[in-house]
Amino acid sequence: MSVKELVERYCRTSKLPHIWCPGCGNGIIMGAVMRALDKADIDQDKTVIVSGIGCSSRAPGYMNFDTLHTTHGRALAYATGVKMANPDLNVVVLTGDGDCSAIGGNHLIHAARRNINLTVVVFNNSIYGMTGGQYSPLTPTHSYATTAPYGSIDRNFDLCKLVQAAGGTYVARGTTYHTRQLVDQIVAGLGHNGFSFIEVITQCPMYFGRKNKFPSAVDMLKWQQEHAVPVKAAAKMTSEQLAGKFLIGELYHEEAPEYTAVYEKEVIAKARGEVK
């Protein structure tokens, strides 16, 4: 499918060009999500895209599906309601690092714990972009932000580890540089019957970049290229070699009972006296 066909099919073309800054990775991720939905051959009329608040969360407005732009941090709570009410819908959640790990952190761990079939794509640009560049729980320690003028002293989350520990059953990390792999990770997440979580390392040249000595989006993608280590390659590397790097690829995958299916099979069946 050509870019033109992709955009015409999966975008609300009258809303484009989008509001994101030049070089912002959000458009790359939204493109990867559309390509993945296409590759996974989903039913466009049975797919709901849910987001919270922030730069990333503007994505659903451009996407030609049923779309729900909720309140800050709460995308997963709304998405849980959508999926519970109608498990036949594919529910994709697009969120940002601040949205899903700070104000929405509680919903993230509990949605993962339930293993409800949602596909979550986190646009991790390490900053609050919409409000002008404040540090988030994913801002690397010692990075600068408007609210961390002397460098952030907070330790940042490893969100993938968090989600895995909470019970998420498909966990992957990608980048906006490794776009082809990113599409495949999202395809795998869409196909996984359970809570799928794809963290995407992306660039905010406007706020994170400027404060942290990245003159352009290109420099930020080069940083991704140099610091991302595929899981398989990492297995053969020493901890010294891995210092300062981050892993990409499928980080965790297990098959486990999916929440809405269990509700049908156990709760409804027991309540109706069909099983004991």
């Binding site: 729900l68 909720t70 709570a77 309601g81 959508v82 009410a85 509680n106 761990i109 509990h110």
Partner: peptide, 22 residues
């Protein structure tokens, strides 16, 4: 469907999501 959510805010969000799903 009944779901006990992780907090009050999530409950309200889930209710809105479910209503949108019909």
């Amino acid at each position: 469907k009944f779901i006990q959510m992780e907090d009050e805010i999530a409950s309200m969000g889930a209710v809105i999501g479910a209503s949108l799903a019909g």
